[in-house]
Design a protein around this nucleic acid. Sequence first.
DNA 1: TACACTAGAGAACGAGCGTTCTCCCCGCAA
DNA 2: TTGCGGGGAGAACGCTCGTTCTCTAGTGTA
Lengths: 197, 197
Amino acid sequence: MVKEVLMTEPSIRDTVVATADDLFYSRGVQAVGMDELRTGAGVSLKRLYREFPSKDAIVLAVLERRAHSWQECLSREVDAAPTPREKLLAIYDYLVGWTGEDTFRGCGFINTFGELGSVNPDVAEAVRAHKEGFADYVAGLAADVGLDPGVAPQLVLLAEGVQTMAAITHDATWAATARAGATTLIDAGLATASSRR
Amino acid sequence: MVKEVLMTEPSIRDTVVATADDLFYSRGVQAVGMDELRTGAGVSLKRLYREFPSKDAIVLAVLERRAHSWQECLSREVDAAPTPREKLLAIYDYLVGWTGEDTFRGCGFINTFGELGSVNPDVAEAVRAHKEGFADYVAGLAADVGLDPGVAPQLVLLAEGVQTMAAITHDATWAATARAGATTLIDAGLATASSRR
DNA sequence: TACACTAGAGAACGAGCGTTCTCCCCGCAA
DNA sequence: TTGCGGGGAGAACGCTCGTTCTCTAGTGTA
């Protein structure tokens, strides 16, 4: 019986967070009311407020979940690439796929930051942590290729720019543009790295 | 007397839009109420609603004003650069200055898009128009240098990435990173362009 | 002076939000 | 069968927002 509680309790949490993620991502946090979230998740309002103390807490849980799933999806694509150089480029292959999806509406972190970042410090911090995590991840991959450390943040900027421009212009070709730019930067970086050796 | 009306009337509009721009940019659109805007602009609510039919209309006016001022500030920096190549790099010099300002809180268009883009098609369109205008501007500058047309959108991505990352991480060095990346992309583009000639 | 008109200040209104409360039903023990 | 505890559904509450309305004071004119 205790075991059952332990098994169902997190599942409700997950349902709520997953539903909230979908709703918040597609329409924005403030455009989605608790009532709609309750209906979408099929949970009573009472239950909802027993799982989370407030809507803000749900927003943070959504960001945490999204950070995990983003990193997981990205790693899957990167890990599948054979060489360090291709692993680095796999980031942009992932972006090609993601920005091409019908449901793509930009980076959820950037959107939430624009909506709540200036008014909710916890949100701002969660977004910052995610973006710095991504930058560190790219830096690690870049180091594996033997790239000059200064190139990695440039690759990050290309990836971030894609998410913004693809969302705003509804144009899925930006990711391919980023991949081409990244290729140039990587090759140039490798050339200078080897010439310095 | 008629002349006086013609001179004061637009000034009230400008005051309202300028005030709204400041408030919306620093705290977000939905976090600023009409009452606060009214107080900030020193205008009666009645007058405010005679100038603008709704808050949405003010948001659009703010975006339009911001598009003009952005293009103006950017052009000033670009025009001051002596050579086409330096004009292109002046974009990033401008970003260095802007992202270093205390009041910098990211790109107002990206923020507003994240907040209202999915719920207000007019906002989404205004943001799209601005970003495509910027992309066209960069493409023009790149063409003046004799760059391959494929490089210009890569330069755009670097510029967009800067605005996102500088805002989120509160780190003003991203603009210099973008400038360095842009230099690499431009030089590589010029090399292939001349080798193809 | 008296009157018509305008404009400003802010009260008022209706809607919608996040959050809480109440009622009712169901399952279970005695 | 009867009392009881808990959970679900949604009504209710307090607040805030965008928008409108009302009241009042001031101004120009006959």
